[in-house]
Amino acid sequence: MDDVKIGEILQPGSEYEQRSREETVRARFWKTARRAAKSVPFLDEVIAGYYCALDPSTPFRVRGTLLAALAYFVMPFDVIPDFIFGLGFTDDVAVLMAALNAIRNHITPAHREAAKKAIDDLDRGH
């Protein structure tokens, strides 16, 4: 994926677009995260980003960028459909890496702690 395409995907969007993306992300995130666990080597950071995106104290633009990346991640049909074995999450990884690199300073220790607990729960099958 080229930088222009990723930049377009990561546009924070309007308040309406953010609400819509948040609904989509909330509905599909955990199912997608479980499926992607072996394909996304930095899933802990993705989950911390999820908690950051849902945190009302996170700045609007940062939330928008994260929600855009997470919405792309949870949608099964994107540039490379997620069901294609071995390739399905490669475009998602590029988008997520770009978003996380752009907003890394906004992910707090509380977001990372929530992610650690969530990963422990996923590992135990909850």
Rank of each mutant, 00 (worst) to 15 (best):
D2K: 07
V4R: 12
V4W: 12
V4N: 12
K5C: 05
I9W: 03
Q11R: 11
S14E: 13
E17D: 15
E17V: 12
Q18H: 10
E23T: 13
R26Q: 14
R26W: 12
A27Y: 01
A27S: 15
R28W: 14
F29V: 04
T32Y: 04
A33Y: 02
R35W: 11
A36I: 03
K38R: 10
S39I: 01
P41I: 04
F42D: 10
L43G: 04
D44R: 02
V46F: 02
A48R: 00
G49R: 09
Y50F: 15
Y51E: 05
D55F: 12
P56F: 07
P56A: 10
T58S: 10
T58Q: 05
F60S: 04
R61L: 11
R61E: 09
R63S: 08
R63V: 05
T65H: 05
T65Y: 05
L67W: 12
A69I: 00
A69F: 02
Y72W: 09
M75H: 13
M75T: 13
F77L: 10
D78G: 05
D78R: 09
P81T: 02
D82W: 00
I84D: 09
G86H: 10
G86L: 03
L87R: 10
L87T: 04
D91C: 04
A98N: 09
A98L: 07
A102Q: 12
A102F: 03
R104T: 06
N105C: 08
I107V: 15
E113L: 09
A114K: 14
A118R: 08
D120P: 00
D123W: 12
R124V: 14
